[in-house]
Every structure is written in structure tokens, then in C-alpha cells.
Amino acid sequence: MDFTFTEDQLLFQASTREFLTGEVTPARIRAGWESPDGRDPALWQQLAELGLTGITVAEEFGGLGMNELDFVLLAQECGYVALPEPLVNTALVSVPLLQQLGGELAASWLPRVATGEARVLAGIEQNLLVEDAHVADLLLLQHGDAWYALAPEQVELRRNESVDPSRRLYAVAIKPGAEPVASGQQAAALTLAALDRGALGCAAQALGLAQRMVDMAVSYSSDRQQFGKPIGSFQAVKHLMANVAVRLEYARAPVHRAACSVANAEAVASRAVSHAKLMACEAANLAAKHSIQVHGAMGYTWEVDLHIFMKKAWALANTWGDTAFHKGRIADYIFNDGAELGAGTTFR
């Protein structure tokens, strides 16, 4: 029983944080809102040079060969800066999908994902829309009981604007003639795995987003003065933030456990993911609610950066499985015969 990260994992987190907070500033995110496709190829190339686009790509294909557990702390950092680039979905969803599909598809695309030359993105029907489909060189798409690997010319995209201007969402229609790369049971297994990994990515990012909003609100509350004092000295303000800190503190371990479960393909992985996502997204939504309150009218403006993080948190809460889906999975387990509940069952 060792529920800690290794030195290396923590160092990787620290260096990633340093890079991301330096590069992915709110100003750069806002610049992305103005650009036609909303994406930043220079930044993607930088991420690739750090090994991040290929972090989960096997070493034989030029990646770092790391797993979900190695990546989870980095995904938190992506959340902390509200990284608009699809790094989390690439590392946690697309690359594992390619690896599971294997063969020529994996051999030809994975090396180019690792170098940053190509972007491979994935979508499942449960998500309604596909994130970043417009910049995908290859689109892995679940449709009905089959998966397709599609070139840009094989699909038609219809953009849907999100409350979060960083998110680029597309309805994808497959043009006639495409052949599935997986179907039946294999496809269903791929879908489930993609959903779990996408949800894990949301949960980890939600932790980072929540932390960022707490940091912003705490800092604002120390500067802003009313009644001759910093507003952060008022107990009502303090307790709002303390309440977030409590929920956030208890959302972390479930996310780390879920990452470990997924990495080890444990039988409980899906349940651990649902648990993690519910806890983390709830913490992030609470952080959003209390942080805007602490900012007063400033928090309700477009100009103050808080909404960059708030809106992403809201969006993540209901993508890669909405709350109904994840609560449903938990309820299906605990309210049925055969559930192992109570003391001593957590790590079984």
C-alpha cells in the first residue's frame, strides 16, 4: 500500500507547472479566442518538445511510454492554467485508443502524435459534440456500435459555440463510404475505455481549475479593501473559501485513486472514475460559485480572468459523462445486491 507519487512524478508536475503558468497566460488564452480556429500551433509544438503530446505513446513509437497515473498530476496543471490545447484528450483518450486499435493505424500515427506533427482526436456519441474536431488530422469516432478512423475529408463539421470560448465543439457527420476500424464488442470496450479516460481527464483538470479559482479569489480578497480593511479579513468571505478548500481536499485522493485504477486496468476503474469526476467537478463548481462571489461585480465581468476558469469548470462537469451518467453508475453499484460496502472494502 503506497498512495504517494514518486519523486520523478512530482518533479515532472513541478516543471510542467512552471512551463504552463509561464506560457499559457490568460492573455494568450484570450488571443486564442480571437483567432479563427482558436488553437495555437506554436504552443502545441512546445508541448511536443517537452514530450507531453507523446507522454502516453509507447517508447517504440517515440513517446515517453508513461501511463494515466504519470499523467494525472500534469492534467491537474493543465486545468490550473485552463489549457485550451487538447493535450489531456490526446494523452488520455486518443493515444490509448490508437494503442488499443494497434496495427498500421497505431504505427503510422503514434510517432507523429509524439512529435507534434499530427493531431489525433476522438469523440464518442455520449458527448454529443467532438472537441477540437476541426484541427484533427485523424478523427477517431464512435458511431453506433462501431469506431471509425477518419481523415478530415471524410467528415463534415458543424461548429457549436460554447459558453467557454476556448472550447471548440463540432457536430461531426461521416460522409458515405467510411469503413469501421472496430465494431461489436471490441468497439463497446473501446467506447467504455475512452469514456473513463476522458472523464478522468475532466476530473484531474477540475482539481486544477478549482485550485486556480481559490488562488485568484484569495489573492483578490487580500488586495481589495472595503470598510478600511481587506475583504479577505471578513469571516464570511474566509468561510466561503474554506468551504471550497474542504471539498477540494477530499476530491484529490479519489482522482489519484481513479488514475491508478485506470492505469492498472482494475475491475473497479469505472466506478473509481465516476467517483472522482463527481467529487472533483463538484469541488470546481463550488470554487466557481464562491470565487465569483468573493470578486463582487468584478467577477461578473468579461475583463476579469476568473471566467476563463469558471466556464471551463462548468463545461467539464457535464462532458465525458454528465452528472446523471456518473451518479447512475455509482447508484447501480451501491444499491444492488453484491455491492461490497463499508469499512475495509475500499481497496478490494
Binding site: M1, F3, T4, Y250, A253, K327, I330, A331, F335, T346
Partner: peptide
């Protein structure tokens, strides 16, 4: 009620997970 029962289970499990994580950290 159903939601409250489910949340109770989630929170109790979260408390367990976080405690194990802290215990392991303290152990190191």
C-alpha cells in the same frame, strides 16, 4: 433521499481515500 444516500457513500469513501493518502505521506 436517494441522492443523499449516494453522496454519503461517496464522501465516506473519499474520506477513506484521503486518509490513506495522508497516512502514506506521513509514513514517508
Amino acid at each position: 433521499v436517494k441522492d443523499a444516500v449516494m453522496r454519503a457513500w461517496l464522501d465516506a469513501e473519499s474520506y477513506c481515500l484521503a486518509t490513506y493518502q495522508t497516512a502514506c505521506r506521513l509514513g514517508k
